[in-house]
């Protein structure tokens, strides 16, 4: 059964029918937002059953759309949190990616700005590596990007998409070592992205992120994970009641090959490792439970089939 990420949007009236249906079909709800009279569900559903969900949600005016970024955690790497980069373009891009289902975290570098002084410390590197993909928002000058990128890419293991002022061809030429994705014409700017051409640029960034993530998904499919992170999320929600007390918007953040659990590591890591998934197989058998560099959260990295010989 192939699960595909979709977003369901509809009225609050009878939306539990859709939730039940998705769960009965073997899908998972990653996030549920209730905004006044509207419900937005970000979920994984079986590919063959999308039409059925559309059919059933039609009388209650629900709408099902593809959201390739659901179930991914994206690091938007901003050079600093100064007015030079915020709220435009960093927040605009982060918010746009969030709108179509991604969970974005903004990572701001302590020594991001400048050319000679630029640097990446170990904490920043580790935080970026905890995500599925990193989107670097660079400035407008070729000379700076060329000089800075090798330093800012040191130790980064996740796929990277670079956005910068020069055009795409120039970015491809100057960035060494090469990265997975490039978007030209999006450097530093000091105005809100609301015109059609600016929104097209944001769409271009999303398309590039999606392309890179699709490739990562294909690579993961070659050696499937021992358990789907979305399933793991549901299990943790059932078996670790403390997660229900967490006030963060996404106490369990689904990633492509793991999960961020927003509970203190020291207290809950042993409990998570002991948690039984099925037939005596515990989470510790099929995943690594490691401390996150972000606060004292827990990162669960699901191991592939080739390492565990188990798929559940």
């Amino acid at each position: 059964m192939t699960l595909v990420p979709v977003t369901y949007k509809g009225g609050i009236y009878q939306h539990d029918i859709v939730i039940d249906l998705i769960e009965d079909l073997g899908g998972y709800i990653v996030q549920k937002h209730v905004l006044a009279q509207e419900v937005v569900l970000q979920c994984f559903v079986p590919k063959d059953d999308i039409e059925l969900i559309r059919e059933i949600s039609r009388p209650i005016f629900g709408e099902v759309t593809d959201s390739p970024l659901v179930g991914t955690e994206i690091a938007i790497v901003s050079m600093s949190l100064e007015i030079h980069h915020l709220p435009h373009p960093s927040c605009d891009i982060a918010e746009y990616a969030r709108r179509i289902g991604a969970k974005t975290n903004m990572v701001s570098l302590a020594r991001g700005p400048g050319k000679r002084i630029t640097g990446l410390n170990d904490e920043e590197r580790d935080v970026i590596n905890e995500h599925d993909i990193a989107v670097y928002l660079m400035g407008n000058f070729e000379a700076c990007i060329e000089h800075k990128m090798p330093i800012l890419l040191r130790g980064i293991e996740v796929p990277v998409v670079v956005c910068g002022g020069p055009d795409k061809e120039t970015l491809v030429r100057i960035i060494d070592p090469p990265v997975e994705g490039y978007v030209g014409g999006v450097g530093r700017f000091m105005r809100r992205t609301k015109e059609a051409d600016q929104l097209d640029k944001l769409d271009e960034i999303i398309a590039e992120i999606t392309r890179v993530l699709e490739k990562k998904r294909e690579d993961l499919a070659k050696d499937p994970l021992s358990v789907s992170p979305a399933r793991l999320m549901n299990l943790i929600r059932e078996r670790v009641p403390a997660i229900l007390e967490v006030t963060s918007p996404t106490p369990l953040t689904v990633q492509m090959a793991g999960l961020r659990v927003k509970l203190p590591y020291d207290t809950f890591a042993p409990e998570l490792r002991r948690m039984e998934i099925e037939d005596g197989i515990t989470l510790g058998d099929i995943a690594e439970v490691v401390p996150s560099r972000m606060r004292d959260y827990i990162i669960v990295r699901v191991l592939p089939f080739s390492e565990t010989n188990i798929v559940i």
Binding site: N140, F141, E142, G165, P166, D167, R188, F189, R191
Partner: peptide, 9 residues
């Protein structure tokens, strides 16, 4: 290209 962006900024 940089000049153009900075004019806008």
């Amino acid at each position: 290209v940089g000049a153009e962006y900075y004019k806008q900024i």
